[in-house]
């Protein structure tokens, strides 16, 4: 029997598929429903210090090769956010990743302290959102020193394992990942959306997204995401969540073989429905059976050898 379980920072996942932050992640009820549909773990939509309504709509659009979004980090604020995590833990046994975002290092620390009080299994620091540059400036994830500094600061505030979510935009991703590891990061999520990009409605000569630009996800970015995971795997020893363009079982196995310990899913919920987790798990299992793999572990980083 093919064993789909994997382990991330000492946390056991029944299967390697993790709901990525920002998708179906506003409430505990929604996250629990995603678990029912087969996710091995779920990530809450990134929580910030205060309530934010996000950008005007459209916040998400699609084209033939993927999706583009600029939701603008809408969230109900940390105090309400931690209530949802608490509720999820009452509803569901699957691991939950508490994701936080801020525009200042000290705020990342405060949010981490607060979110730790409700004991998410893992904490993800989202230092790579590409959609709020006007407010936030260059994301921490694009600068090795800033990434080191924020990771170190956050690590001092919690005992819960910390995942740092990096950006596929970084060309020096090896250096950035190494700095995060040095600062004590327990895992890397590689990574956020690529871009931002632009799509224009030609009849009206207007950008489609209200924010004009948005982060790109879906099949279009898969080869880039795979290369970034590959590079990070070569640079660090800590585990990697490979996120970007995974739509089917083959894509997921590619991520594992590039070096991911677990695989993030987001846009695939759109292209294949909310039960995409069950579907991809079946596809991975089918592949493993056909190719004599007994466990996920056997495939992690296999393409490097």
């Amino acid at each position: 029997m093919a064993d789909l379980s994997t382990e991330l920072c000492g946390i056991k996942l029944n299967n390697p598929l993790i709901l990525a932050s920002g998708i179906m992640g506003v409430t505990a009820s929604s996250l629990a429903n995603v678990v029912k549909n087969g996710a091995g773990a779920v990530t809450i939509k990134s929580i910030g210090p205060e309530e934010r309504k996000g950008h005007p709509c459209p916040v998400i659009t699609t084209w033939e090769a993927g999706m583009m979004n600029a939701v603008g980090l809408s969230n109900a604020g940390i105090d309400r956010g931690i209530e949802e995590i608490k509720k999820f833990k009452e509803m569901c046994d699957a691991p939950i990743i508490g994701s936080v975002f801020a525009f200042k290092q000290s705020l990342f620390g405060e949010l981490t302290e607060k979110i730790s009080t409700v004991n998410p299994d893992l904490i993800e620091i989202n230092i790579s959102c590409p959609n709020v540059e006007s407010e936030a400036g260059t994301p921490f994830a694009l600068d090795a020193k800033a990434a080191y500094s924020v990771t170190k600061h956050v690590k001092e505030k919690t005992k819960i394992p910390v995942i740092v979510k990096l950006s596929p935009n970084s060309l020096n991703i090896k250096e950035i990942a190494k700095e995060c590891e040095k600062a004590g990061a327990d895992a890397i999520n590689m990574g956020n959306t690529l871009g931002p990009g632009l799509l224009i409605n030609i009849e009206t000569a207007k950008p489609i997204l209200a924010n004009k630009f948005g982060g790109i996800s879906g099949p279009a970015i898969k080869p880039i995401a795979l290369k970034r995971v590959w590079d990070v795997y070569e640079a660090v020893k800590i585990p990697i969540i490979g996120t970007g363009g995974v739509t089917n079982g083959r894509d997921a196995v590619e991520m594992l073989m590039a070096g991911a310990t677990a695989v993030g899913l987001g846009t695939a919920v759109y292209s294949r429905g909310i039960d995409v987790f069950n579907k991809i798990n079946d596809e991975i299992k089918g592949f493993m059976k056909k190719n004599n793999y007994k466990s996920i572990k056997e495939m992690i980083g296999k393409a490097h050898v």
């Binding site: 920002g22 998708i23 179906m24 992640g25 506003v26 409430t27 505990a28 009820s29 929604s30 996250l31 629990a32 429903n33 995603v34 029912k36 939509k45 996000g54 709509c57 459209p58 916040v59 998400i60 999706m67 939701v71 809408s74 509803m91 987001g266 846009t267 919920v269 759109y270 909310i274």
Partner: peptide, 22 residues
């Protein structure tokens, strides 16, 4: 409703977690 096609999670209802756009 934000996206309308079942991905943003904004229209999900408690406690069954289903999307009102989908």
């Amino acid at each position: 409703i934000k996206c309308g096609f079942g991905i943003c999670g904004q229209c999900v209802v408690d406690d069954i977690g289903i999307r009102m756009c989908k």
